[in-house]
């Protein structure tokens, strides 16, 4: 299983029936592929839709029905549409149960940086700051390291997305959470040892006595 699939499958286990869920661009988008159909989760697209469905078949694209990246999507039976004020009222108002976002860095306090690299990449924060600030539960889905550098860091060097700490981090190597404000290793990926996770993690990570293998 490739890294992205592993991360997406693990994150999918966090969703509960009836949850209103917002998925970010990239690995988070893949999470929708691993939700069992009987689970009945509502997916929100922040451009104004609850009930996003799969990419439509050829010839069935509607120019007025797109995801937050502007790509064609479909709407499931029971879907609803609304304006951007309502959409971000849902997000900021705590009505979104789970948001899954990509990340550039997460630090030992659970702070996420995911929207700019000063001087290099300034795409803008889009909806990310509102999502991290307002969603009931924030899950970061990302590679553990990029170009040999740990994305799990002691303190974020990149501009933060929010002062609100995230709840869970799922990488290709580990599942990490912050019980009592302490960054803690919860699970390791299949075939990955605790020592291997430690070796590529540039942060003080609490290691419980037993660390089970990642559920997928």
């Amino acid at each position: 299983m490739d890294a992205q699939t592993l991360i997406a499958r693990r994150v999918a286990l966090e969703l509960r029936p009836g949850n209103l869920v917002n998925l970010g661009i990239g690995i988070p988008t893949l999470v929708a592929n691993y939700i069992p159909p009987e689970l009945k989760v509502f997916f929100q697209s922040e451009n104004g839709l609850i009930g996003t469905g799969p990419i439509p078949e050829q010839g069935m694209v509607h120019p007025h029905l797109t995801d937050a990246g502007g790509r064609p999507i479909s709407a499931l039976p029971g879907a609803s549409t609304f304006d951007s004020a309502m959409s971000f009222g849902l997000i900021r108002g705590g009505h979104v149960d789970v948001t899954v976002l990509g990340g550039l860095q997460v630090d030992c306090e659970g702070h996420l940086a995911n929207w700019m690299i000063p001087g290099k990449m300034v795409p803008g924060m889009g909806g990310a700051m509102d999502l991290v600030t307002g969603a009931k539960r924030v899950i970061v889905a990302m590679q553990h390291a990029a170009k040999g550098k740990s994305k799990i860091v002691q303190k974020c060097s990149l501009p933060l997305t929010s002062s609100r700490p995230v709840d869970l981090v799922v990488t290709d190597l580990a599942v990490i959470s912050f019980p009592g404000g302490q960054m803690t290793l919860l699970e390791t990926a299949p075939g990955v040892s605790v020592a291997e996770v430690m070796a590529v993690t540039e942060a003080d990570l609490l290691i419980p006595e037993t660390v089970p293998q990642m559920r997928i």
């Binding site: 697209s45 451009n47 104004g48 839709l49 509607h62 120019p63 007025h64 029905l65 797109t66 709407a75 549409t81 609304f82 304006d83 951007s84 004020a85």
Partner: peptide, 12 residues
């Protein structure tokens, strides 16, 4: 009246 996700910022 607006259509689907083409509503977005327009009414505001």
């Amino acid at each position: 009246a607006y259509a689907l996700t083409a509503r977005n910022f327009n009414p505001v």
